[in-house]
């Protein structure tokens, strides 16, 4: 008998599989395709104070083993999310959802978190201080330990829900940012957001993305993400959610061995809309093959000295 249960910031999940923000809408759209209650939970589309269209198109470019996106936080704004999207989700999802929050100022993060805090369906606030596709906000909070800490402190004052800070890999030392967030009161860390990259159209000599650069995700970044999860999990004592190119049950287990308590799946959803369901279904078999009885017991085993 294998046990896939884990506990994330005090909330028990049936399994550690979490579709990542920006690849799963507000959940109900994906519930057209399968029963999303099989998931541990999912992180909904990054939500800001006001409605945002995002960047111009093209917003997508392909590359070997992954893709670049420069969507730029398209979302209907927190009021519409609460009034329209969450009620639709409630019809198809019985579990607590992870609310992904973005902003361009500390005040905006506070505004959005304060409102989502009142929503019973919201289990965790995942605060994104790492979006590489918007200017004058997003990632700039995630590249400086002091600014990161200021967001955490401000948000913690307006919510009693666990606050998970989502970090960017586009820094010299991600552990120093993670430590600053922990010290400021964060309840968890999720990493990694996408890595900045670009592609050029050989026929025109111009960047493919209208935004010039975009965030790289997919299997191409898995080893980088794994290394960063390993480093951060070693440095902090709060739970870490690992993500970056995860595409299989084996990848989930590898992330957990590196130190992740739960694991998000992003780009893989875009190629196979059923991938998270497949991973959940495959986990027990893969665990059995590896003689793993409980996923909770493998969290961070790679950190131990052999």
């Amino acid at each position: 008998m294998t046990d896939t249960k884990i506990t994330l910031c005090g909330i028990e999940l049936e399994n550690p599989v979490i579709p990542a923000s920006g690849t799963f809408g507000y959940g109900y759209e994906m519930a057209e395709y399968y029963d999303i209650n099989c998931l541990g939970t999912f992180s909904f589309k990054g939500t800001t104070k006001e409605e945002r269209f995002g960047n111009d198109t093209p917003r997508i470019a392909e590359c070997p083993s992954g893709l670049l996106n420069s969507v730029g936080l398209q979302n209907p704004g927190v009021k519409v999310v609460i009034r329209e999207e969450l009620p639709k989700l409630a019809l198809v999802f019985d579990k607590k959802v992870m609310a992904n929050v973005s902003g361009f100022s500390v005040d905006e993060y506070v505004y959005v978190c304060e409102r989502l805090d009142k929503e019973r369906q919201v289990g965790w606030l995942e605060v994104n201080i790492s979006c590489p596709n918007v200017h004058g906000g997003g990632m700039s909070f995630g590249t400086d330990p002091n600014q990161a800490a200021s967001v955490v402190k401000a948000v913690k004052q307006v919510t009693t829900k666990p606050v998970i800070i989502k970090l960017t890999p586009n820094v010299t030392d991600i552990t120093s940012i993670a430590l600053a967030c922990e010290e400021a009161g964060a309840d968890g860390i999720s990493l990694i957001n996408t890595m900045l990259g670009m592609r050029i159209d050989l026929k025109t000599g111009k960047p493919i993305l209208a935004n010039t650069t975009g965030g790289l995700s997919g299997p191409a970044i898995f080893p980088v993400a794994l290394r960063m999860v390993y480093d951060v999990a070693k440095a902090v004592s709060i739970p870490v959610i690992g993500m970056g190119g995860v595409s299989s049950a084996e990848d989930v287990i590898e992330m957990m061995m590196a130190g992740a308590t739960a694991v998000q799946v992003g780009a893989a959803n875009l190629v196979n809309p059923f991938i998270c369901q497949d991973i959940v279904n495959n986990l027990p078999d893969v665990m059995a093959k590896l003689s793993i009885e409980s996923l909770e017991n493998i969290i961070g085993i790679s950190q131990e000295e052999f």
């Binding site: 759209e29 269209f53 198109t57 997508i60 969507v71 959803n269 875009l270 809309p273």
Partner: peptide, 22 residues
């Protein structure tokens, strides 16, 4: 036509503005 990520509405990669909204 637009460059697409997923093709089924999950990624917002191919959004456009219309008179009736995004």
């Amino acid at each position: 036509e637009e460059r697409m990520g997923c093709g089924f509405g999950a990624c917002m990669g191919c959004s456009c503005k219309t008179v009736t909204g995004y």
